[in-house]
Nucleic acid binder design. Structure first.
Lengths: 221, 221
DNA sequence: CGGTGATTTGATTACCTTCAAGATCAGTGG
DNA sequence: CCACTGATCTTGAAGGTAATCAAATCACCG
């Protein structure tokens, strides 16, 4: 395929980041999109009081910043939840390719739609579910997305970052999150590790969170 | 401009809806996008228990369903918060135009990015702010968006639908929302009407909600 | 072994939901 | 004209969820 070759021809620069580093700060102007190669990134917003709320996660294979192609000033930041390796793909290349190949333009647009669909789901999860269910829902989603990205089975996996980060994702205090993790642990659904969380029973979590994966817009199999 | 003419040439069918009607039900397959001409639409998700959470609002001039062009099965529903008139624009036309004119394809993509940015904001608002601030934040956003759409000054306006709907947007019980409206009323920021809410002091609401409009990605003036 | 960051526990308080009931208003039919 | 209905708005009280304040324990690292 011609399109595939054009994409591969970009051969962007790669870059390594330590955990807890910010790759992009809010309000920064950027000239490249970020393709995740290894690790987990979080998109975040900052509040006036300094609290940070993570609004989206990006796993290997995800384009974290495709938004920035049509809108070059990013309103959010990008942080490394784990040590990460990313490719920095220049906007100029992406714009050129998307103008040349309609199918790629549509694919990029589609990617933004998936992102938007996940955000819409999270608005409803945040608005309507209680802490333990939110946590379970997040773990379900991560399991499926890891599986789709070819990162293991998804039904049992380790989330290798501390509870404080999880709390920033779920909009909870670390203290309360800790208690909720305790509840799930008591049910045998998860296991806590030193600086991480291990999912033991994906099925059980899905049941608890009333999880339903259609919003991820997975390709039909 | 050639692009403008091509867009106008579509001349889609218009349709009227009563308040509280659902234009699109979740999981329905659709073949047209929805351009709002009059009224206010809400995008919503349904929960297993029947509760409905509104995740986005659409005002006159907005394309409510542009997502459905690259992804034809909609995971959400679309409801009329007020009586509304919409144009139904066939996907086929939109796809054709976006393939023919790169600038339009980019504009559509950009529109999806704006939508996504607003959703990301709402994730953080739902996660981190308390009820009265959420309400104030919503009113601030609506004010600015109305103004941008040329629907009056935005600093003082009427939201013409009952509190139950507002509660569905904010993820609150109508009872609690009512009390929060009472608080804002006591501060002289809003005034309640029969089946509506009147914003009196946009500035004051912005201050209360710590509102900052950059996430709306407004065109620079 | 002390220091630092992470996890866990306890007690108190603020926020929001739930359940219950009363008040107001528009429209309908007798 | 008036009683009736249904939707909306409002108020009260009780209970659950999560935040806050405070402190103890644990794991790793230099």
């Amino acid at each position: 395929m011609e399109e595939r070759e054009a994409l591969l021809a970009i051969s962007p620069a790669s870059r390594k980041w330590d955990a807890k580093r910010d790759l992009v700060r809010p309000r920064q102007r950027i000239s490249h999109a970020t393709l995740v190669a290894e690790g987990i990134l979080g998109r975040f917003a900052l509040f006036a009081d300094g609290r940070r709320q993570i609004t989206a996660l990006h796993f290997p294979g995800d384009m974290a910043d495709l938004h920035s192609v049509p809108v070059t000033i990013s309103g959010w930041g990008l942080t490394a939840l784990t040590p990460a390796i990313v490719y920095e793909v220049p906007h100029s290349d992406l714009r050129m390719i998307s103008e040349r190949y309609d199918a790629i333009a549509m694919a990029f647009w589609r990617d933004t739609v998936v992102d938007s669909s996940i955000l819409a789901k999270w608005v409803s999860v945040m608005a309507a579910m209680k802490a333990s269910e939110r946590l379970a829902h997040l773990l379900c989603e991560i399991g499926i997305r890891r599986q789709m990205a070819g990162l293991g089975s998804g039904t049992s996996f380790v989330l290798p970052f501390p509870q404080v980060q999880l709390a920033d994702i779920l909009g909870l205090t670390p203290i309360h999150l800790n208690r909720m993790i305790g509840e799930l642990r008591a049910l045998g659904l998860v296991e806590s590790l030193d600086r991480g969380l291990k999912v033991l029973d994906h099925r059980g979590l899905c049941c608890l969170a009333d999880f339903e994966d259609s919003y991820l817009l997975l390709p039909p199999r």
